[in-house]
């Protein structure tokens, strides 16, 4: 199956390891990967801050980038949620709305793609360690992907899973919220880190690089011995 990868700007610039793991994992599962160089950002930073006009520029460029793709897959629930929002953003636009719809329909978050499209529940991974998992808000609530990462993790050999208390609570990232409302964001991420610590896990896993950057950055600042990994890296380890 041919898969067009949308790496996302955060993974491209800051977490290339998650992108690499995504490529290797999908190839191992029999996919042929394509990575269009012209991809940039889904537009979310501007869109969520209310700059819809500016965001639309980014969105149009993305729609064109992926126009010929059969499936677009990304290691980010949040950016795929944004793709799925495109038709709503371009509502009433005779040229872009239909194109946006097409992109939305063929875009999938990585674990969602593996479980729902490839119909694979065990990727044959092995990961020795005690882990907990952060359910990102956009991926679970807006995209509605709750089960797929759990199914995949439950089949990883050697992995010891502990549920994160208060898992449905936002980590306090929220894009520009993290700097605009830094005071509040700090309290939110602190509570999240406290819960992660309570689990006694060695690893915190997540499917959204941005949330991981937030929680991980706070864990590091506090000098806690917890490692942060993208789910692609765990599923790709053997």
């Amino acid at each position: 199956m041919k898969v067009t990868l949308f790496a996302t700007c955060i993974v491209d610039m800051f977490q290339s390891s998650a992108g690499i793991a995504t490529v290797e994992l999908l190839e191992r599962l029999g996919c042929e990967i394509e990575f269009p160089e012209s991809q940039v950002c889904c537009g979310q930073p501007a869109y969520n801050s209310g700059y819809v006009k500016e965001a639309k520029e980014a969105m149009k460029s993305m729609i064109d980038t992926f126009i010929d793709a059969e499936y677009v897959v990304s290691p980010s629930g949040s950016c795929i949620t944004m793709f799925r929002e495109y038709p709503h953003v371009f509502k009433g636009d005779p040229v872009w709305e239909p194109k946006a719809k097409k992109l939305a329909e063929k875009s999938f978050e990585l674990t969602q793609f593996i479980v729902d499209v490839l119909k694979i529940e065990d990727v044959g991974a092995r990961f020795d360690g005690k882990v907990t998992y952060h359910t990102s808000c956009h991926m679970t609530r807006l995209l509605g992907v709750k089960k797929a990462p759990m199914i995949l993790l439950s089949n990883v050999k050697g992995l010891e899973f502990t549920e994160l208390p208060g898992k449905e609570q936002c980590c306090g990232f929220g894009g520009t919220f993290s700097v605009k409302m830094a005071q509040i964001s700090e309290q939110m991420v602190d509570e999240k880190v406290m819960h992660v610590e309570e689990t006694g896990a060695e690893y915190l896993i997540g499917a959204d690089a941005a949330c991981l950057m937030n929680i991980g950055g706070r864990i590091e600042r506090q000098g806690k011995p917890i490692k942060v990994l993208h789910i692609a890296e765990v599923l790709n380890s053997r």
Partner: peptide
Amino acid sequence: FGLGAASP
């Protein structure tokens, strides 16, 4: 952002 994101 608009400029940068729209221009690969």
